[in-house]
């Protein structure tokens, strides 16, 4: 039996900001272009993939984020089982999409670490290392963007006002967390 160990152990709290990793979360990367691809996904997960740039859509179980005109990431809204990494939804979509050549379905659950940042200082932290213009983004629940924070690629999902999910590639996550903590300690 293999034991599960996420990359970030410690939750942190600062005035106006709390930082924690949320794990395990299932994450799937979906790619495809055709109408069939979109409708098949829609039918099978009961959710329409967002086709408007920089947006997301959500159902009870999943949230899907626009990444590019032919690329999305679907994540589970809730924590999944640590003892098992066979995801029914992955298998279902892989069979309906990859095997029928409608597009691709790839498990990226551990490709990305999900860091949740919450509090009124969230966007102050981001603005100290990110050139993205958050003026509209911070007003818009469900907005998604891919950009660079402290020169590290990130995906940001605006979950609730002043509450964001930040996705970073696992190997960069310790560095980025350290950077965020350093920035937060100076708020």
């Amino acid at each position: 039996m293999l034991n599960y160990k996420s990359s970030i152990i410690e939750d942190k709290k600062y005035s106006g900001l709390s930082i924690k990793e949320i794990s395990p979360i299932m994450k799937l990367n979906l790619r495809g272009k055709s109408r069939d691809f979109l409708s098949t996904i829609g039918k099978n997960i009961n959710m329409i993939l967002p086709i408007e740039a920089n947006t997301s859509s959500s159902s009870d179980k999943y949230t899907s984020m626009w990444l590019s005109p032919d690329e999305w990431m679907i994540i589970s809204n809730n924590i999944i089982d640590k003892e098992n990494n066979n995801y029914e939804i992955e298998e279902l979509l892989f069979n309906k999409i990859s095997k029928t050549n409608l597009g691709s379905v790839t498990d990226v659950s551990d490709q990305f670490v999900l860091i949740n940042l919450e509090g009124e200082s969230v966007f102050d932290i981001l603005s100290s290392g990110c050139a993205f213009n958050f003026n509209e983004f911070m007003q818009k629940k469900g907005a998604v963007t891919q950009t660079l924070l402290a020169q590290v690629d990130i995906i940001i999902h605006h979950k609730e006002i002043n509450n964001i999910n930040l996705f970073v590639r696992r190997s960069f996550s310790e560095h980025l967390m350290s950077w965020i903590n350093d920035a937060a300690s100076r708020l």
Binding site: A53, N54, A131, N133, Q146, T147
Partner: peptide
């Protein structure tokens, strides 16, 4: 043309 206005660093 897909994501809108972004900084050159991206």
């Amino acid at each position: 043309p897909f994501c809108g206005e972004r900084d050159q660093s991206e």
